[in-house]
Design a protein around this nucleic acid. Structure first.
Lengths: 244, 244
DNA sequence: TGTACTCTTGTGGTCTGACCACATGGTCGG
DNA sequence: CCGACCATGTGGTCAGACCACAAGAGTACA
């Protein structure tokens, strides 16, 4: 402990103490992305707790997407703070949806809100970085015949994620990834209910192009309505009882 | 920002196996909110893993807000699946902001997006449940003299969260709570930079009333601009370099 | 009979020590 | 000089032993 002797009020459990120590080190800048966390055994003795408690804390940080761990020795081994967020939001939402903590309808509604915000941001951007998204659409077009619904929908998700990333908002991009992955099983499960997968795929591809066109044309309202229609349309087609 | 691992076919680590088992039980409906998870020792022997691995998995679920644990014996002891989501999103965002995974500016921007969506939803709602939010404003008014900035801002957060809850979207409500708690330290740290805390507090209280009035009047655009101005105004006043 | 007390049981919380698998980097022999 | 080998340090895992705690069963006593 360095500056603030404020012993946190809520560290009844040993692993929480470990977590708090790391959080304060992060806030103070003692730990920055790319740094190694102390070896489990070292931090355990430093804090006067057992190694298992340190491990529980590290496990939490790993699932939250804050660190990655690797066995062995050398510069890449141990627990390293990752620079770019990954995974945590998806894991959280996936489990919350699985446990019925988040109704799927709310997830879909939230996605509509965020997608609209993303395209709105892209429209007002001077030179949006849409190369990634465009390339994904090209792939969908050129390989449309050989793509399974699962593959196609994965590209669809990648397209929407690429838009979110292009909008420049890390938080929204994370949320979009999480929202998508949390309902992925529902999206896939709806495919057999479609009258014609080929027709649906063709429609989705066209809608993607329309969205991109609207963004490039700087037409905010058109882009927003296009993406809204694009998303809610699919859920309606698979008869998903979202509040549309 | 992962493309979502979809389904991990192989749990190369023991605790991932435990997590998968629980996730599938949740998806199949074998486990529902209110149920007890198996005792750590039981699940360990059932899955052929060590108790520490089960503990790591349970710890993750606890931090994600999926379960709560309690010692002792009786109906309330053990690990119980929580019905309503709590905490997980806040923990995730707090650590991601601390580790510089989420820029604070992005958090603020995202909050603007979601707040706007919340008031928009409330305006289009027939009879929004605003009693909770109103009561919070009443408290802020009647006890304004005795409230410290910290107390006041806590009520402010509660007001915005109440709006999100009233909108009926669980996911957005969670996100709002998470966004807020992740930047709470910044919000508090900005108070000393204010020319006059009393003036700012008075302004914020008035703006809250304006937002509520606009919602009750059914004026969507006014409500949206009011809440947008309310939020970005504070960050500008504390000289926080958020995007607009 | 009823009430208060004690004890048993089952739970999570923690620590210790012992392995294993693995990746690195140095050492030694050719 | 180079390749094979081994020492070291890391996370991953397990087993076992305690502890604290809460509920419920059992018991003693009035």
């Amino acid at each position: 402990m360095t500056p603030s002797p404020t012993v946190s009020p809520t560290a009844h459990r040993a692993w929480e103490l470990v977590l708090q120590r790391i959080e304060t080190d992060l806030l103070e800048g003692t730990l920055v992305p790319g740094d190694h966390l102390p070896p489990e055994r070292t931090l355990a003795t430093d804090l006067g707790v057992g190694r298992s408690s340190v491990r529980e804390a590290y496990r939490v940080l790993e699932v939250l997407g804050l660190i990655r761990t690797q066995t062995g020795s050398g510069p890449q081994s141990g627990a390293i703070i990752i620079a770019r967020p990954s995974g945590g939001m998806s894991t959280l939402m996936r489990y919350q949806v699985a446990a019925h903590g988040y109704p799927v309808a709310d997830v879909v509604k939230t996605r509509l809100v965020l997608e609209a915000a993303v395209v709105s941001e892209l429209v007002s951007s001077d030179a949006p970085e849409l190369a990634e998204a465009t390339q994904i659409l090209d792939t969908m077009d050129s390989r449309t015949a050989e793509l399974s619904p699962s593959d196609f929908l994965a590209l669809d998700a990648a397209f929407h994620l690429a838009l979110a990333v292009a909008s420049g908002n890390t938080v929204i991009a994370s949320m979009m990834a999480g929202l998508r992955s949390s309902v992925e099983s529902y999206v896939l499960a709806g495919v057999p209910a479609l009258p014609s997968w080929d027709d649906t795929a063709a429609r989705l591809r066209q809608e993607h192009r329309d969205i991109l066109s609207a963004i490039n044309a700087g037409n905010a309202s058109l882009a927003a309505s296009a993406i809204s229609h694009h998303i809610s349309g699919y859920y309606q087609e698979i008869n998903f009882p979202s509040g549309q």
